[in-house]
Write a protein that binds this DNA or RNA. Structure first.
Lengths: 268, 268
DNA sequence: ACGCCATCGATCAATTTCGATCAATAGCGG
DNA sequence: CCGCTATTGATCGAAATTGATCGATGGCGT
């Protein structure tokens, strides 16, 4: 067996399963662990994989900010079920706007298989999540990088959104009340979100239960402009009723609606 | 058996299975390994296959082009020394444009400590690299995501660049010749690079020695528009002389030239 | 926290493969 | 018929790959 052949098989196994172990590859390739280890070391130097004790894993696409990804994991299950519900609103051939936020990011991760989809976003993380989904066309707005949310804001972002029209906008925020609608602490972010809402025929707000009833400094979209609110079952029913009263199509994602989130790494 | 016949059989075997080994072919063709080796060497020179220890493989295993991260590791040292040299051109308070490419990315990694710097880029990787550098203001152009280079291209990208003015543009490409200047294989990328060059008072091209003398499909910037070319010591001196003749300030970063140019960037 | 065990990295030896030089054979033209 | 050249085959030293062993390191269970 040629060396290149061996490495190609290792790369193949790695891509299909995400991880390979030294012993496993040694058995599969009819060679010793030493050789596999050397191959892995060489491939790691080329950036094809990342070495780990006992094997190797796929390289992280691009580095993630720990603080942000931590937050993303926090209420992962709830956000994922909200995203699942939002996914049903997206049809093949759609053009959608996707704002920044962990919930919209969860939605972005589900979009890979939708054909003919165009996604406009100002979130670098959304763009990154869609990097591997070659079927989806991704358009980023321009703008100034706002590090805390990994997104582009400012006049340039607003202008580039204003030049577009999309069928639906999926945006998030830090608070949602029946009276004031969606709100966020930063005026810059609010202005961008407002531009998103203005460029879409339908405005869909994704907000987990911790946001419902909260109000923060800047109103981004008034309740009257919101067509659909997707939240999870932890939200106060009275508030949801009031929001429905205002004409919003409120949808509640239950934690049990899509339960396939088994964690094996709970030991930390 | 004729030589051409032999090589045709080798090519056939290679296409059908992806790999051939020297010993195997020698047995199959009723000839010696020496002859097979000679054939492989000749065919490799023609680009029909890629030589490997003990045999040969197909040149482009479809779908596995050198991934971006692979390329980034490839000539890391040379690119880093080019970036070091480019760093000297950047002053506090500058506004610069940074194109996509592994060399410009290397430069981006060095910019963290420059105060009052504004960086405009269409590369997600550059933005990512500057994510941690809170002193630097990062502006992304809008545009359509081009996955192969992790950058934003298209009319939207060009428009947003045209709305700006910067003191210097640092761009890269796939080839640079004295006659045609900087070139790249993709028309979309070329158009964006051209917009970058048009928006800057000074155009600085970063190109390692493998690019010098290469010419690819789309010219991005003619030699006359390039003020400075930074390359490494592996480049052909005759070509560099011709480029200098055309009025370009050519600077060569040697492996040892880091010491000469480390004014403010000694800690990195 | 401690100790055990798997894993890792480095070095050495054995085998294979590579490249270069030299000899032999076949085809070709004069 | 003779000489020339191109191709093929052979041999040898050099280089690369592979496998094994040993000390060191890190992870994991108790």
């Amino acid at each position: 067996m040629l060396a290149v052949e061996r490495r190609r098989l290792i790369a193949e196994n790695l891509r299909s399963r995400g991880v390979v172990s030294v012993a496993e590859m040694a058995g599969l390739l009819n060679t010793t662990e030493i050789t596999v280890r050397r191959d892995l070391r060489a491939m790691a130097k080329e950036g094809q994989l990342v070495r780990a004790h006992g094997g190797a894993v796929l390289p992280a696409p691009i580095g993630h900010e720990p603080s942000y990804s931590e937050k993303a994991r926090q209420a992962g299950a709830e956000k994922a079920s909200i995203a699942q519900l939002a996914l049903a609103l997206i049809l093949p051939g759609d053009s959608i706007l996707l704002g920044p936020g962990t919930t919209t990011l969860a939605l972005a991760r589900l979009l890979g298989e939708i054909p003919e989809l165009t996604v406009v976003t100002n979130s670098l993380l959304v763009a990154q999540a869609l990097m591997a989904s070659t079927r989806v066309e991704v358009i980023l707005t321009g703008g100034t990088l706002r590090r805390s949310i990994h997104a582009l804001v400012g006049p340039a972002a607003e202008d580039s959104v204003r030049a577009l029209r999309a069928s639906k906008a999926f945006i998030s925020g830090n608070g949602f009340t029946p009276e004031r609608g969606l709100s966020t602490p930063s005026p810059l972010v609010a202005a961008t979100d407002r531009a998103f809402a203005g460029a879409a025929q339908q405005v869909v707000v994704l907000a987990d239960h911790t946001k419902i009833g909260q109000d923060t400094m800047c109103q981004t979209v008034p309740t009257a402009r919101v067509h659909t609110l997707i939240t999870d079952s932890g939200a106060d029913p009275a508030l949801l009723a009031a929001i429905r009263e205002a004409g919003v199509d409120v949808r509640v994602a239950g934690p049990g609606s899509n339960e396939r989130h088994e964690r094996l790494a709970s030991a930390s």
